[in-house]
């Protein structure tokens, strides 16, 4: 177990290192950081002094090392457009994005998994076909268009739910703000989380259905039926558990993707999260925010994958106990 985890951890760290290299390259070489920081009237000498002070004249490996050390301490430099430390800007916006992602992931899993199981077990039933059709529409409608349609329907036409913002938030601890504790906060969460979660929900549903259909054709399921086991046992103890192994991987990837997809949803709903800030950074070529965002999402993603690998380990005995 420890060896397994250590190996996975090492792989995760390599991925993070490569991403850090990318982020650093972007940070250092795209545009001139000095130009972005100073006004036009700054003299050449002053620029050179700033360059020296920021260490931009050091050898590249030294700069990279410094970049990693600082990033590990959440120091990502100063935003070009806001003239504030990037870490502070992110600290303000992370709670909004994580709460939105959490709500959508919950929605995607709670609705997607049962639908997938049902459709996998009852391949020919009318309800399964309905699920499949709906899911096809779900993956065909672009996320942002779903958001627009929901806003048009529930905000503009019916005026039931707000079309932008987080509603009222409550401060929890020193820097976390939550929208889960107020009515307006919860109401504001409904449309964005459905918008964000719908695509993942359909993917999860289709995946589980497809895996179920594969597993049901295996010999051990046929043998379980030939032993006269009741359908309930065959379907849930044998088929579902074997389905889980591949499903967990993809689901992990999808949950990671939610955080990235949040960018779109946050734009449509003007949700004050880090995705929205990232988009503005892209439009204004605010490189420090871009590279910090790159590192952050990669980190969340790698962390989720690591957890998934560990889960794998508990589900699949073939990883746990060796052959004699």
């Amino acid at each position: 177990m420890i060896g397994f985890a250590a190996r996975r951890l090492l792989q995760a760290m390599i991925v993070m290192l490569v991403v850090a290299l990318l982020a650093f390259t972007m940070f250092r070489f795209v545009g001139d950081p000095i130009n972005q920081m100073v006004g036009i009237e700054t003299s050449l000498e002053e620029r050179e002094a700033l360059r020296e002070r920021l260490g931009l004249n050091d050898p590249i490996p030294v700069q990279f090392l410094r970049f990693i050390t600082q990033a590990a301490q959440f120091d990502f430099g100063t935003s070009y457009q806001f003239r504030q430390p990037v870490s502070e800007l992110f600290a303000k916006r992370i709670p909004a994005t994580l709460e939105l992602s959490f709500a959508s992931a919950l929605f995607a899993l709670v609705v997607g998994i049962p639908m997938g199981i049902y459709a996998g077990l009852n391949r020919e039933s009318a309800i399964s076909k309905l699920f499949l059709s709906v899911s096809l529409i779900g993956i065909s409608l672009p996320t942002f268009f779903i958001g627009i349609l929901l806003i048009f329907l529930f905000s503009v036409t019916l005026q039931w739910l707000p079309s932008f913002g987080r509603g009222e938030v409550v401060q929890v601890g020193s820097w976390w703000t939550t929208g889960f504790l107020t009515l307006s906060g919860l109401k504001a969460l409904i449309l964005p989380s459905i918008t964000l979660g719908l695509y993942q929900m359909t993917l999860i549903m289709r995946l589980i259905r497809a895996e179920m259909l594969e597993v049901i054709r295996t010999d051990y399921i046929k043998f379980a039926r030939a032993r006269g086991l009741p359908d309930r046992l065959v379907n849930f103890r044998h088929a579902l558990k074997n389905t889980l192994v591949p499903v967990i991987t993809i689901t992990g990837l999808q949950l990671g993707a939610i955080i990235a997809f949040a960018t779109i949803t946050e734009t449509v709903f003007q949700w004050p999260g880090m995705g929205l800030m990232f988009l503005q950074a892209v439009q204004n070529v605010d490189i420090p925010i871009m590279s910090a965002y790159l590192l952050l999402t990669a980190f969340l993603f790698v962390a989720i994958n690591f957890i998934v690998d560990i889960l794998y380990f508990f589900i699949d005995p073939r990883l746990r106990v060796g052959r004699p």
Partner: peptide
């Protein structure tokens, strides 16, 4: 279904795929 296993047992060809890999 109640006959299967109770009155009639079955043995398949490939022992490597006949058992659920996740159950003891």
């Amino acid at each position: 279904r109640l006959l299967r296993g109770r009155k009639i047992g079955m043995i398949f060809q490939d022992p490597l795929t006949s058992l659920d890999p996740l159950q003891t």
